[in-house]
Amino acid sequence: MIRVVLPYHLRNLAMIGSEMQLEVSGDATIASVLDSIEQYYPMLTGTIRDHTTKKRRPFLRFYACGEDLSLAEPGTRLPDKVINGEEPFLVIGAVAGG
């Protein structure tokens, strides 16, 4: 079970609490976690990555275990602590304002 923490507005869209828990089939990679998010919460499709190009939306970044995975390849395997549920996969929005 993989834990995912989303920004406030996406949690509201998905009607979930502080974090979501997902079953991910096969290797737990950045792409497979995003696939799983979109499968179980299709209202989030297009909000984290582009519908067509599948590119991460520019104001969002991905983190896990203190590591910035924003620019990592989509097929990058997530850290073991994320895969076994000890640590969450973080989707973080750019800070509004300045």
Partner: peptide
């Protein structure tokens, strides 16, 4: 995506593409 209704079809695919332009 009405609350309480299934969000995916039998194949697990999203039932709508309401924000896909």
């Amino acid at each position: 995506f009405k609350p309480g209704e299934p969000t995916t079809n039998d194949q697990g695919m999203p039932v709508t593409e309401s924000n896909k332009f």
